[in-house]
Design a protein around this nucleic acid. Structure first.
Length: 154
DNA sequence: GCCAACGTTGGC
DNA sequence: GCCAACGTTGGC
C-alpha cells in the first residue's frame, strides 16, 4: 500500500465547518474553482490521505481538526448545474473541467490552532499556508502535520 | 468592511 | 503572448 500523504483544505467556517463535517460523516468537496487545487485533488490525492481541516474567515482562522480523503477524484456535479453559483458553462459531462474528492470526518481538535501560531512556529515557516495565502487545497509535510496536531493538544 | 495578494480574463 | 483590468480570497 502506498504511503499516506498529508494535505490542508480550507473551508469558510460559516459555509461548512468541522462540526458540519462531523454531523455529516463525509461530504463531496464541491466548489473548488482553482486549477492548482483541482490538479492536486484530481492527480495527487488518494483515499486514506490525511487532511488538516482549516477554517477560513473565522475568529480566529486556523486548523480545527483532521479529515481523511474518502474517494478517488470524480467530476464536481455542480459544474453542470445551471442553478448553482459553481456552474461552469464551458464544462460538459464528456469533458468535465472540475474534479473533487469526498472528505470524511476524523477528529475535531480540542482547540483551534490559530493561523498566527502557525506563522510564529519556527518549523512551520515553509508551509504553503504561511507562504501563499490563497490556495485552498495544499500539500503538507508529515512533520508539519504532526507539529500542528501536537499544538492542538497543548 | 477594508484592502492586499494574486489568479483569471480579455483586448490588442 | 503580454499585461492591465477585474474579480475573488481571506486576514484583520
Amino acid at each position: 500500500m502506498a504511503e499516506v500523504r498529508h494535505w490542508l483544505m480550507k473551508s469558510e467556517e460559516d459555509e461548512y465547518s468541522i462540526d458540519d463535517l462531523a454531523r455529516d460523516g463525509s461530504t463531496p468537496w464541491t466548489g473548488v474553482r482553482n486549477y492548482e487545487a483541482r490538479n492536486l485533488m484530481r492527480d495527487e490525492m488518494k483515499p486514506g490521505d490525511l487532511i488538516l481541516y482549516y477554517h477560513s474567515n473565522a475568529r480566529p482562522s486556523g486548523v480545527a481538526g483532521i479529515a481523511r480523503v474518502a474517494s478517488k477524484a470524480y467530476p464536481d456535479p455542480l459544474q453542470f448545474d445551471p442553478e448553482s453559483s459553481y456552474h461552469d458553462k464551458k464544462a460538459t459531462e464528456e469533458e468535465p473541467r472540475w474534479f473533487l474528492v469526498d472528505v470524511e470526518f476524523v477528529e475535531k481538535f480540542d482547540r483551534v490552532v490559530p493561523l498566527a501560531e502557525v506563522k510564529d512556529h519556527p518549523d512551520l515557516q515553509e508551509m504553503t499556508l504561511v507562504r501563499r495565502m490563497r490556495l485552498s487545497v495544499q500539500p503538507v509535510e508529515e512533520e508539519e502535520f504532526r507539529i500542528i496536531r501536537e499544538m492542538a493538544s497543548s
